[in-house]
């Protein structure tokens, strides 16, 4: 079996789980989330096997081009989400994160064949920094994706409470305090990782091109993203902004992440391959 087959299995399972989660919010069936999470985990195993397979096929770390990176991004989102639901016991997070993971790997799978080809590494990418820099960056993106999902849950829950709309969502979502805290904690995980990602990128650039910073669009946008989250932390810790305002800032931060990842790759030209 090729790595792409494993990924197809994972995509199918993530889609199924997403549908199950939607059903969960429409019908009151308490067993659905358990089954859905079990499915997600099966998909995650297939996904992991696929990544291992891909690195063997390509004989390099499985994130050397856009396609591989999107598959890896999806995997990182689920990995960080497992950590969060283990730590905060909010299983319902899966319902919001699984669609994100599905979108990332699904979008990767519909990329044109040219993007999926295994290419040998160009000289600049032949470095152990590739593994460190990329994996750290994507773990940070994933943590921000979780922060985004919880911020979204916060906004939904807040609307329910504000307009006294007591529906399925209200009962299934955790309290505002927990959502606020988890969103903050995810950013508190993502921010050091993003910092490390930028730093390792800078050291790598110094080794490869003789400058640690060159205002390449990807570099600049990662700095912009970094400043947005630094702003979030300052506003939250110093000015005491919490809850809704913080949730909105977290959503803005994640749009910056998405632009740094996709926007820069497709709209602006630079030195990064994705």
């Amino acid at each position: 079996m090729e790595s792409a087959n494993y990924f197809e299995v994972a995509i199918f399972i993530y889609l199924l789980s997403t549908i199950l989660y939607i059903a969960h919010f429409i019908f009151q069936r308490e067993r659905i989330p358990r089954i859905a999470l079990l499915f997600v985990s099966l998909g995650f195993i297939a996904h992991t096997l696929g990544l291992i397979h891909r690195s063997i096929e390509a004989s390099h770390a499985p994130f050397a081009n856009l396609y591989e990176s999107m598959v890896f991004f999806s995997w990182c989102i689920l990995l960080v989400h497992y950590f969060i639901i283990y730590k905060y016991k909010i299983r319902v997070l899966s319902a919001f994160v699984t669609p994100l993971a599905f979108l990332a790997i699904g979008a990767a799978s519909v990329l044109p064949m040219d993007y999926k080809k295994i290419e040998p590494l160009v000289p600049a990418l032949q470095s152990y920094w590739l593994s460190i820099h990329v994996s750290v960056c994507f773990l940070s993106y994933a943590a921000f994706a979780i922060a985004f999902a919880t911020a979204l849950m916060f906004i939904i829950q807040e609307k329910r409470i504000k307009y006294k709309k007591i529906d399925n969502f209200y009962f299934k979502l955790p309290s505002l305090e927990i959502l606020d805290e988890v969103s903050y904690r995810s950013i508190a995980i993502g921010f050091p990782l993003l910092t490390l990602g930028i730093i390792t990128g800078a050291i790598w650039a110094q080794n490869a091109w003789g400058r640690y910073w060159g205002w390449d669009p990807k570099e600049t946008w990662s700095l912009i993203t970094w400043i947005v989250y630094a702003l979030y932390l300052h506003i939250r810790l110093q000015s005491g902004w919490r809850r809704k305002k913080a949730a909105i800032l977290s959503i803005i931060g994640f749009t910056m992440v998405l632009f740094t990842y996709f926007g820069v790759s497709f709209l602006l030209s630079g030195l990064h391959s994705y």
Binding site: T220, I224, I227, V228, L231, H234, I235
Partner: peptide, 24 residues
């Protein structure tokens, strides 16, 4: 003042964005 920090950060963000939109 933290307000100054916030304003400066926002200005840096905006200037940096301009720098990626206008060819340098």
């Amino acid at each position: 003042a933290i307000k100054l920090t916030i304003v400066l950060m926002i200005v840096i963000i905006l200037l940096s964005i301009i720098g990626t939109l206008i060819p340098q």
